[in-house]
Simulated assay, not measured.
Amino acid sequence: MAAELWEDRQVRFDIPISAMQLRPGEKIIDRLEAIEDTKGNNGDRGRLVVSNLRIIWHCIAMPRVNLSIGYSTIINITTKTAQSKSRGGGASAMFVLTRFNNTRFEFIFTNLIPGSPRLFTSIIAVHRAYETSKLYRDLKLRGALIQNKNLNILPLEQVYDKVAGVWNLSSDQGNLGTFFITNVRVVWHANLNEGFNVSIPYLQMKSVKVRDSKFGQALVIETSASSGAYVLGFRLDPSEKLQETAKQIVSLNKIYGNCPIFGIEFELEELVEDPDQLTIAPTQDDIEIETVEGQGDVMAAYFADGSKRTDGEPVYSPELGLAIEKLKEGFTIKGLWEVIEQ
């Protein structure tokens, strides 16, 4: 099984150079020079790399100062004016609000080249493509997966096999259904109810084995912790069919692990002619810096709610009729709902 995917699901600060390199299946879509991390490293010239899984920013002078922002953590992206030391005053900047480990982080990126909109268009478009392709990466229960007994095929998906007579062992009596085995996932649906189904991407499979159960031998698919750590059992008769199906899923899972398909497809209208420009330049990793103790200091600059890490004291709000976190001095419920145009 491939290493568990973290690049699109985490926010990391000052990661090792090795973690900045692309994992299998990760592709660079755009690379922008002269980008400033205005909130955390104001005044430092940096490079921003847009991949199909995350945003990577690093300081040109010191690549160890860097950020990795997974698309799954992004709450919203807006454009406002920020004060940049490099630009010498106010400049149009991209504000990225994220949430990771129950903490909100805000990042501000400013393009040091005036009049260039690519910073905003690339990231917003790729993030939208990520949000609309979750079935490639996430386990889905009872979704709109089947129509008229046929699988709703994803754009990059190929169906390799359709296996009838598959019992789902999630209930005492079992449910008879059908497998669709593709190049990116395994989908099962009940024959009598198409809405009773499950889509299991290879990306989320922790193990695939044949085990004994109270129903006899069964195909057992265990999913990753990030997808809920499900243990899904299926029975197929005869035994030869069970073994053959299990072998096929294991084989396709291995092939997928060598070259994952994440489903995020996006091409720039103006492609960079030199492919070397769409790579992360190798950097000599000759200095070991211990960042564990100081990690809080690094993160503090990006806290979206000041420097607090825990929720504040709960108080009753007569306006909302429920308990809320105590507001900071000078803030009102009405004010928090207002949108101020910049």
Score class of each variant (00 low, 15 high):
residue 302 Y to S: 12
residue 183 N to G: 10
residue 18 S to Q: 13
residue 211 R to A: 15
residue 278 L to H: 09
residue 148 N to K: 14
residue 182 T to Y: 00
residue 189 H to I: 02
residue 199 S to C: 13
residue 321 G to D: 12
residue 244 E to W: 08
residue 312 G to E: 02
residue 228 G to Q: 05
residue 288 E to S: 08
residue 227 S to W: 04
residue 269 E to R: 14
residue 152 N to A: 12
residue 281 A to I: 11
residue 35 I to P: 07
residue 156 L to N: 10
residue 77 I to H: 12
residue 109 F to D: 00
residue 271 L to M: 08
residue 12 R to W: 03
residue 78 T to M: 11
residue 282 P to T: 04
residue 121 T to R: 08
residue 115 G to L: 05
residue 284 Q to P: 00
residue 108 I to S: 06
residue 301 A to L: 15
residue 252 L to E: 08
residue 121 T to M: 07
residue 329 E to T: 06
residue 79 T to P: 03
residue 248 Q to N: 10
residue 253 N to E: 09
residue 276 D to C: 11
residue 309 R to E: 11
residue 187 V to A: 09
residue 266 F to K: 05
residue 176 L to M: 14
residue 125 A to E: 15
residue 288 E to D: 14
residue 175 N to I: 03
residue 67 L to Y: 02
residue 112 L to F: 02
residue 105 F to Y: 15
residue 34 A to E: 13
residue 256 Y to Q: 05
residue 83 Q to E: 05
residue 256 Y to E: 04
residue 183 N to S: 13
residue 314 P to S: 12
residue 307 S to H: 10
residue 137 R to Q: 04
residue 338 E to L: 14
residue 72 S to P: 00
residue 117 P to C: 09
residue 27 K to W: 05
residue 204 Q to W: 00
residue 49 V to T: 14
residue 279 T to M: 08
residue 63 P to A: 12
residue 235 R to S: 15
residue 51 S to F: 01
residue 337 W to I: 15
residue 107 F to K: 04
residue 222 E to I: 06
residue 323 A to P: 01
residue 341 E to D: 13
residue 303 F to T: 03
residue 43 G to V: 15
residue 82 A to N: 06
residue 199 S to E: 06
residue 278 L to G: 02
residue 137 R to T: 01
residue 179 F to P: 11
residue 134 K to G: 04
residue 321 G to S: 13
residue 138 D to I: 01
residue 314 P to Q: 15
residue 51 S to W: 01
residue 84 S to P: 02
residue 39 K to N: 11
residue 107 F to Y: 15
residue 97 L to S: 05
residue 225 A to F: 09
residue 231 V to G: 03
residue 88 G to Y: 03
residue 141 L to N: 09
residue 193 N to F: 11
residue 33 E to M: 07
residue 158 Q to V: 14
residue 73 T to M: 03
residue 339 V to K: 12
residue 215 F to P: 02
residue 209 K to E: 04
residue 88 G to E: 05
residue 70 G to A: 05
residue 152 N to H: 08
residue 213 S to L: 06
residue 103 T to H: 05
residue 214 K to M: 15
residue 192 L to G: 07
residue 124 I to D: 03
residue 56 I to T: 11
residue 99 R to Q: 13
residue 83 Q to C: 09
residue 20 M to P: 02
residue 323 A to H: 12
residue 234 F to C: 07
residue 128 R to L: 04
residue 29 I to W: 06
residue 195 G to W: 08
residue 75 I to T: 11
residue 158 Q to P: 01
residue 28 I to G: 02
residue 244 E to T: 11
residue 27 K to Q: 13
residue 277 Q to P: 00
residue 25 G to N: 05
residue 15 I to R: 05
residue 109 F to I: 06
residue 59 C to Y: 06
residue 319 E to S: 10
residue 75 I to M: 10
residue 207 S to F: 03
residue 342 Q to N: 13
residue 217 Q to K: 14
residue 331 F to V: 08
residue 162 K to N: 02
residue 121 T to G: 02
residue 268 L to W: 01
residue 285 D to W: 10
residue 38 T to L: 06
residue 80 K to Y: 09
residue 175 N to F: 10
residue 217 Q to H: 09
